[in-house]
């Protein structure tokens, strides 16, 4: 048992008071390891709530630097951070929030060559990325290596999220193939209401915490779709696809680096 100092008891008191968390649940949180891929609109609030919750190790993977246009929604970064590596800016914010949390900064873009090694050190993965090639790669790698993860995507006033745990339907059971280039606008082209990352990214953090605690019902086999204009949340039941290119029997997963649409390529 972790020897909780009075300061820790006070910091986590609102968790410990919950029947579903308690002392042992807070211990689970403090010893948990969560990887957040993408320190952007979704990853920023997810990282901050997980840090506040006391998740012992938070990995943050992102190769980008903070851009002025990020600040409308990526609340882990500040004006003074523009030009700084996102992983460093995020690490500084988390360290200032909670000294109990260790941040592991992975300053890279995940690809088929590095993803297996990166995810292997974590209990749960939060997909906070902004493009389909990496979303499909994260799904395939997590299914292959039996890692639970939270998928999410946001655009304009809409968002969606689904949680994968081994055995449950995966992202490709619902969306088997990458949409063709140009079929779906990216948030760079289409815009996104800043709060969408907060709403959906915070749901991802809640899923990570519920998984760590082993309480409640995850969004496994459920696709949650949210429309901020109408304030409608819809939970759609999804099934495992017999023909799923990733998780069906004998699918034979190969990790592929799909090409990103040209307009999405980052300039450094």
């Amino acid at each position: 048992m972790i020897d909780f100092s009075d300061e820790m008891l006070e910091r986590y008191s609102r968790h410990i008071l919950l029947k579903e968390v308690g002392v042992s649940g807070q211990e689970k949180i403090l010893s948990a390891r969560v990887l957040i891929i993408g320190a952007g609109g979704l990853g920023a609030p997810a990282a901050m709530y997980l840090a506040a919750a006391g998740v012992g190790t938070i990995g943050i993977a992102d190769a980008d630097v903070v851009d002025l246009s990020n600040l409308q929604r990526q609340i882990i970064h500040s004006t003074a951070d523009v030009g700084k590596a996102k992983v460093l800016s995020a690490q500084e914010t988390v360290n200032a929030m909670n000294p109990d949390v260790k941040v592991v900064a992975h300053r890279l873009f995940v690809d088929s060559s590095n993803i297996a090694e990166i995810i292997s050190g974590y209990d749960f993965i939060v997909d906070g990325t902004d493009n389909f090639p990496v979303k499909y790669l994260i799904n395939d790698a997590c299914v292959l290596h039996k890692k639970p993860f939270s998928h999410a995507g946001i655009i304009q006033f809409k968002g969606q999220t689904l949680t994968y745990v081994p055995g449950a339907p995966c992202f490709r059971c619902v969306f088997p193939n990458m949409p063709p280039e140009g079929a779906v606008p990216t948030c760079r082209q289409a815009g996104v209401l800043g709060v969408m990352g907060g709403i959906i990214g915070t749901i991802q953090a809640a899923e990570a915490l519920k998984y760590i605690l082993g309480v409640g019902e995850l969004l496994a086999g459920k696709l949650l779709v949210f429309d901020a204009l109408t304030m409608n949340f819809r939970k759609i039941n999804v099934n495992k696809a017999k023909t799923c290119p990733t998780c069906s029997e004998g699918a034979g997963i190969k990790l592929i680096d799909y090409a990103a649409p040209v307009c999405d390529l980052k300039k450094h």
């Binding site: 048992m1 909780f4 008891l9 006070e10 008191s13 609102r14 410990i16 008071l17 308690g22 002392v23 042992s24």
Partner: peptide
């Protein structure tokens, strides 16, 4: 309050 009950929960854990 609420550290009172938090301390009770820690003691119950033991």
């Amino acid at each position: 309050c609420p550290i009172t009950f938090v301390k009770v929960k820690v003691a119950l854990e033991r």
